[in-house]
């Protein structure tokens, strides 16, 4: 078995003259919750899109779930779950229809879909909303559902792009409980966020500034290194260096 769920070396992505991701190297261990932090425009989403096989790297090497990001993107897609920044379920499909669609796409056997859907709805306390259109759900519920759909097929890694943006604190707490549960099931979690309290929940975090990774360690070590009390302060110290404007 491979040691790392994600292993990236000297990854760079350029758009014309603009270097969105500048020579980053890092790895994520299997089963880890990895926080991928950075200000708006630091290059987080671009880097994540490369890892998910949605974008080609300009240079650099990397593997995700043991597959090469440059040449084996379709294999990667079978082993990951992805929840994008924009809302990623179909608004005009019902809750159960969304679950069934993505389960089917990822090859969950037909006869398993139905019972596992019921089970999922029960754990989420969603059974009454089974036949609601997704467009009718409040944002927090949508996000929880989208996350559940992203890990329904038990992927090796799940990528979450700002999953808790615009969600109330209580729902965010529940969301992180779900992330821990997924992690306990052995799913590696790769998450970007703007909330520094959430960064504290991660096993390790990296902080990107202007396309480069400026720091990468456990939240505790980072706080000790910068002699501050919270991740928020660590982030300010690093993000202040940014010269790039959005």
């Amino acid at each position: 078995m491979m040691e790392y769920a994600i292993d990236v070396n000297n990854l760079t992505k350029k758009f014309g003259n603009f270097t969105a991701v500048d020579n980053i190297s890092f790895n994520v261990k299997r089963g880890e919750i990895f926080g991928f932090l950075g200000a708006n425009g630091a290059g987080k989403t671009t880097a994540m899109r490369i890892l998910c096989g949605l974008s080609f790297p300009t240079s650099g090497k990397g593997t995700v779930a043991g597959y090469d990001i440059a040449t084996q993107s379709e294999n990667i897609k079978k082993s990951i779950g992805y929840m994008s920044q924009k809302f990623s379920l179909y608004d005009d499909l019902k809750v159960w229809e969304n679950i069934r669609l993505f389960a089917g796409i990822y090859g969950v056997p037909e006869k398993e879909i139905e019972p596992r859907t019921e089970e999922l709805l029960k754990t989420l306390d969603f059974t009454s909303e089974r036949n609601s259109l997704v467009s009718k759900l409040p944002l927090g519920w949508k996000q929880k559902l989208a996350f559940s759909v992203a890990i329904f097929h038990n992927p090796c890694i799940v990528f979450l792009d700002e999953p808790t943006g615009g969600v109330d604190p209580e729902t965010r707490r529940q969301f992180w409980e779900m992330i821990y549960e997924a992690s306990d099931r052995g799913i590696t979690v790769f998450v970007t966020t703007h909330y520094m309290d959430e960064a504290e929940y991660c096993d390790r975090v990296s902080i990107m500034v202007d396309g480069k990774i400026e720091a990468l360690d456990t939240p505790l070590n980072l706080k000790n290194k910068f002699r501050v009390n919270s991740m928020e302060e660590v982030f300010y110290l690093l993000a202040r260096k940014a010269t790039r404007n959005e």
Partner: peptide
């Protein structure tokens, strides 16, 4: 984008 991130 969600579909593109799947093996479809």
């Amino acid at each position: 984008e969600q579909i593109n991130a799947t093996p479809v």
